[in-house]
Design a protein around this nucleic acid. Structure first.
Length: 433
RNA sequence: GGGGGGUUUCCCGAGCGGUCAAAGGGGUCAGACUGUAAAUCUGAUGGCAAUGCCUUCGCAGGUUCGAAUCCUGCACCCCCCA
């Protein structure tokens, strides 16, 4: 991860072009200030789950861009703030996570965070955990030294608090209300400790960031700055990175490279441009060329392909990308019967599989309805029957039309695996060891 | 305390004592079209050894040849009057 460039590159202009800026605290002076010297900045990630997901990606890219421009990023893992739960953007009180879970999550995300930044060079990134300094406080001192600087009327005016309180049935506990203080203090602490002067985050962090800046002002630090980036949303307004099946994670254990690749490949036309800008480090001319291409021939979906390739390679490496591509090829119709057990296992690693006794294939063979049920593609034989009679059932990518069909060893795709499919995309494997 | 209304298949919601596995919508699944999209259109949508059989209409009983539909009791929900 080379960071060859110097900080005289116009990072503000770059971020602007990439539509990465929602709001800044000081739009007039920020560009000069950033151009004048190598600055230290931070973004926080709370251990609310045991991995990073697409939603965290925007802020990570932000840090990366700053680092490339010669600034020094700090990644803050929120061991302390995670104990409390950020009310921002949530319309309900959060349930507290147990310390054990938080600790476990902390381990996972800390590891992942390191993948995306350079920790070696002169402006190498720093990983910190706010629990390390928060644990030193006792309650009374914190109230006297920090809490004293927070006017409640100002806190109440913050968007994150206001929206929650306006929903009469939601409400907010004192605990969550205090979250802001912790994050504000983080900023001030990082300033004292590392000279950190800028905080970046998603637009939902605006209130927390400005709280930190305000606290700094009252405690007499030099001016602090904040930048928020827009939250990535789909054209229907839903947050990116969530599907019906769940969150898209960065870790290959939680979301396979294939599923990851597919997610980006299927991004809507009207969002893909923003994704290319916001989430990749692709050159401007390439992105503009894709914009053009999309206008002329949207059906080619070159934008989606490039987006999927670029991000998948970035997150999962060349190897992950090639696996994802290969799986995509096969899962979208290619012939399956020429493959070996091992190849199938690799390609269909995402696909649920069931083991069935090989003996079932001998004699009359295995009832096709039974097979679809066992594979989990149908909840009942009626459902399986329906699926077949409507032409939605496939064995080894070949449509099955006969409801009475029976499967034998001839229907194995490889030595011992059979590939079943319902509809266009729902696959399942049956293994006959 | 008094009076009234409700509880239906994944969800909403219609259901005359038989022709009710139960209208309609949503969702979901599949098909066509397509760009592995969106929109649209079509079909399906309790289970099973399937021209039939079994289980479902808050719960438990009862009336009846026959009940989601009538009666009794119970539970939960809503509304109105005090």
């Amino acid at each position: 991860m080379a960071t060859g460039r110097s900080y005289d590159m116009d990072i503000c202009e770059e971020l602007d072009w990439r539509a990465s800026v929602q709001q800044t605290t000081d739009p007039d002076h920020l560009p000069q200030w950033l151009a004048a010297a190598s600055r230290t900045l931070y973004a926080g990630f709370d251990p609310t789950s045991d991995g990073l997901h697409v939603g965290n990606f925007v802020a990570l890219m932000m840090l990366r861009r700053f680092q490339k421009a010669g600034h020094r990023p700090i990644v803050l893992a929120g061991g302390a703030t995670g104990m409390i739960g950020d009310p921002s953007g949530k319309n309900q009180e959060r349930t507290l996570l147990s310390p054990e879970i938080i600790d476990h999550n902390l381990q996972s995300i800390s590891g992942e965070l390191q993948q995306f930044l350079d920790f070696e060079s002169s402006n190498g990134a720093i990983l910190v955990n706010n629990y390390d300094w928060m644990k030193r406080w006792d309650y009374l001192s914190f109230l006297r030294d920090i809490g004293k600087h927070f006017p409640v009327n100002v806190m109440l005016a913050k968007e994150s608090v206001k929206t929650r309180l306006e929903q009469t049935d939601a409400g907010m506990s004192y605990t969550e209300f205090s979250y802001m203080l912790l994050q504000a203090y983080d900023f001030v602490h990082l300033h004292k400790e590392f000279g950190c002067e800028l905080q970046v985050g998603g637009s939902d962090q605006w209130g927390n960031i400005t709280a930190g800046i305000e606290l700094g002002r009252r405690l007499g630090t030099s001016p602090l700055y904040g930048i928020t980036c827009p939250l990535l949303t789909r054209s229907d307004g839903a947050k990116m990175g969530k599907t019906e099946q769940g969150t898209i994670w960065l870790s290959p254990q939680k979301t396979s490279p294939y599923a990851f690749y597919q997610y980006w490949y299927n991004v809507d036309d009207d969002v893909v441009g923003r994704c290319l800008r916001l989430l990749t480090e692709m050159e401007r001319e390439d992105i503009l060329a894709l914009d053009e291409d999309r206008q002329v021939d949207p059906g080619s979906r070159n934008s989606q392909r490039r987006l999927a390739e670029t991000i998948t390679e970035f997150v999962h490496g060349k190897d992950g990308l090639s696996k994802a591509c290969r799986a995509s090829e096969v899962l979208f119709g290619a012939e399956v019967s020429a493959l070996s057990d091992q190849e199938l296992a690799e390609i269909f690693s995402d696909v649920p599989s069931e083991t069935v006794d090989r003996g079932e294939l001998s004699g009359d063979g295995l009832d096709i309805l039974e097979a679809f049920c066992r594979a989990g593609l149908a909840k009942s034989k009626s459902e399986a029957r329906r699926c077949i009679s409507q032409g939605g059932a496939y064995v080894n990518n070949h449509r099955v039309e006969d409801v009475e069909a029976r499967l034998s060893t001839n229907d194995l795709a490889s030595e011992s695996v059979m590939v079943l499919r319902s509809g266009k995309k729902r696959y399942a494997l049956l293994m006959f060891p």
